[in-house]
Design a protein around this nucleic acid. Structure first.
Lengths: 185, 185
DNA sequence: GTCTATACCGAGATAGAC
DNA sequence: GTCTATCTCGGTATAGAC
């Protein structure tokens, strides 16, 4: 999907990459729709676990910000979004998981912001979450097109605001471990 | 593209919708790539003209905000984004026009914000533009999936900030004309 | 469980008649 | 300029041998 777009993902090519024949793909996954849903679900489950970890760190805002600034996952999600426009089963799957992600973010970030003394009436936590994830995803999409006008200034502004609340970004134990691993999921 | 995704746009289907045969599509547009580029260019040119108008109104921030909150254009742009991932010519076209849009926004909004007394060092105009368009596009994408958790609060916050600078939103002459037209481009 | 073979479809593109 | 006819390719999916 990342190499050539979702439309280039065919049972033949999947089979070839896996070193088997096309018939086996259908034998195990049924239709291509079901295969796409299976792939999305696996990625989404692992991302949910990852988000739970970064949100429960000592710097939840840094965790949220860094985890959304991941070109790999953003590009993949964009492919699934495009795919979903004419695959209802995929669309439902994305919607379900998106709500789970959002609810988890709200649960944790709300209490975090309250502990930082942010006025929830003037700056609702859910709005801060949407602003952070929205601008992050937007810039990731643009960067895939080599457009980065104003990005450095915007990153600087967001990180300045986070820094005022949580201090300098500190690497987590997971960051150290990541240096010894190539795993993306 | 909106009905069934870009992958469903074939020379045969385009021809059928136009009431001609597939051969004619190739006769006039060459390859499908060239057809997609031609379509994008036509839409982009008209959107550029539209943006120039709303940015030169008496309420440029309202104009920018409202013009980005257009589900029709957002959905179409998402299709082109997805298409671009494996069509280099389309990707170049999108990048070129995106930069033109951005530069126009910066040119006009910068002086507008200065006249409003916004400190450009603390809040760079380009960052305010990115925040507004980014969060807007993000919500449009989510709404296509029927996800709207926190959207109303976020819209309320953005519009409160715009209102502090430009007062209540006032309909333009174009808005009145739009009531008598179904034209989308 | 895995393969080969195949049915069937629709895609992009072009040749050539009119 | 527009058509019909056709080539070639690759897609999904299944049947049936092993």
């Amino acid at each position: 999907m990342l190499e050539a777009g979702y439309a280039a993902v065919s049972s033949r090519r999947v089979a070839a990459r896996a070193g088997v024949t096309g018939a086996l793909v259908h034998y195990y996954f049924g239709t291509m729709d079901e295969l796409f849903v299976a792939v999305f679900r696996r990625i989404a489950e692992r991302s949910l676990e990852r988000q739970a970890r970064v949100l429960s760190s000592v710097q939840p805002l840094w965790g949220l910000w860094d985890s959304t600034r991941d070109q790999f996952n953003t590009a993949l999600l964009m492919e699934f979004n495009a795919l979903a426009s004419h695959h209802q089963a995929v669309q439902d799957e994305i919607a379900t998981y998106s709500r789970r992600f959002r609810r988890m973010q709200i649960d944790i970030i709300s209490s975090v912001l309250e502990s930082y003394g942010i006025d929830a009436a003037a700056w609702p936590p859910v709005t801060i979450i949407l602003l952070m994830t929205g601008i992050s995803r937007f810039m990731m999409i643009e960067e895939a097109f080599e457009i980065d006008i104003g990005h450095s200034e915007t990153v600087a502004l967001v990180e300045r605001l986070i820094r005022e609340l949580e201090g300098e970004r500190r690497p987590t134990a997971e960051d150290y471990l990541a240096r010894f691993s190539n795993s993306r999921f």
